[in-house]
Amino acid sequence: MSAAAVPGLAVRGASKTFGAVVALDRVDLEVQHGEVLALLGDNGAGKSTLIKCISGVHRLDAGSIEVDGQEVAMTSPAVARAAGIETVYQDLALFDNLDPTGNFYAGRELAGPSWMPRGLRWMRRADMARSAAEIVDRLQVSLPARSATVGMMSGGQRQAIAVARSSAFASKVVILDEPTAALGVRESRQVLDLIMRLRDHGCAVIVISHAMDHVIEIADRAVVMRRGRAVGEEIPRPENRARIVSLIVGGDD
């Protein structure tokens, strides 16, 4: 995290209003490659709006988003993905009726010939299965039979598939919204390990989480949001816990 390094992702002066509600108020944020940034805040603090703006679901009213120093106009999820940003939503956006490979490649199937319109191409199913297997091995995700539909898998495995899908295609930034909510202890462990491997592979990672233990364990830095603004930044350590919590709930002002 040297000051000279170009951040993997930089948000500058991000503002967003929904009618009379100010969801984001001039938020600045930077994440380096190989860094895990925790985004903290109470419900309605603006975390979700911020990541939706970064991932192209919402458009910023003002401010800019830069990936590797290049400003990108995030007009749609496809633009964000093309810029190397992948997002794991809280609801995972998995297809229960497809197998892991189908989930990995949903919307970006390997297919040809290239002169055909995208939707009418013939899928290269063997190629997809092979590279999906490689991704699964590389990230050390343990799955049951790879041909089983995702609907038949446990919560942790589903989460792992969603994280693996994003990390497989994210060249630069991975955003995870509550990746361990609704998971058991052992399943959370699997997902946390996966996040740390993402970091080791050089991704800039943003994690939204309410689970302070997990934040302290995996995050290099924590930015706290309140009422649409970034109100503080801490290095998450066990001894900082009370400070961070008071930042979140606004106890010290």
Partner: peptide, 24 residues
């Protein structure tokens, strides 16, 4: 075998997820 057919299943499995992943 065809991409469009896969998209039919994707839309049936998770319409909102399909939209977010850029499926028309």
């Amino acid at each position: 075998r065809v991409v469009w057919g896969r998209w039919i299943y994707a839309v049936g499995g998770n319409p909102e997820g399909a939209r977010r992943l850029g499926i028309p």
